[in-house]
């Protein structure tokens, strides 16, 4: 016997929308702070061009840009969760089992 999960109600979708909204706000603030950290680190980097054309940086990209990379990953994670949520809401909205009968009654 397999246990089936009840179909999500509109309230469930609303709850998830609120949760994702809060996550998106928090994710946005964290991403902004991380990006600002990378900007500050990149500003402190010196780039020297040598006579033979080679370039020497005082700090590697790995050191300066890892916060920006994390920021991007966080923003992309929020985006992916929102896409899944929107797909579920769309499927819920356009489901066919609530069409009224010609007399306006439920099927």
């Amino acid at each position: 016997m397999t246990a089936t999960r009840p179909a999500p109600t509109e309230r469930d979708h609303w709850r998830r929308q609120l949760l994702l909204t809060l996550v998106a706000v928090a994710g946005g603030i964290v991403s902004l702070r991380l990006m600002a950290l990378s900007v500050a680190r990149e500003r402190d980097v010196y780039l020297v061009i040598m006579a033979d054309g080679s370039r020497v940086r005082s700090a590697s990209y790995l050191v300066t840009l890892w916060p920006a990379a994390v920021a991007l990953a966080a923003a992309f994670g929020v985006f992916a969760s929102l896409v899944v949520h929107t797909y579920r809401v769309a499927r819920f909205t356009f489901r066919s089992d609530i069409e009224p009968s010609p007399t306006g009654e439920l099927p």
Binding site: V78, L82, T86, V89
Partner: peptide, 16 residues
């Protein structure tokens, strides 16, 4: 990505 998040969020809000 931020713009895409805003767009998707608006779509889900519209559906709700």
């Amino acid at each position: 990505v931020i713009f895409a998040v805003a767009g998707v969020l608006l779509l889900s809000a519209a559906l709700l």
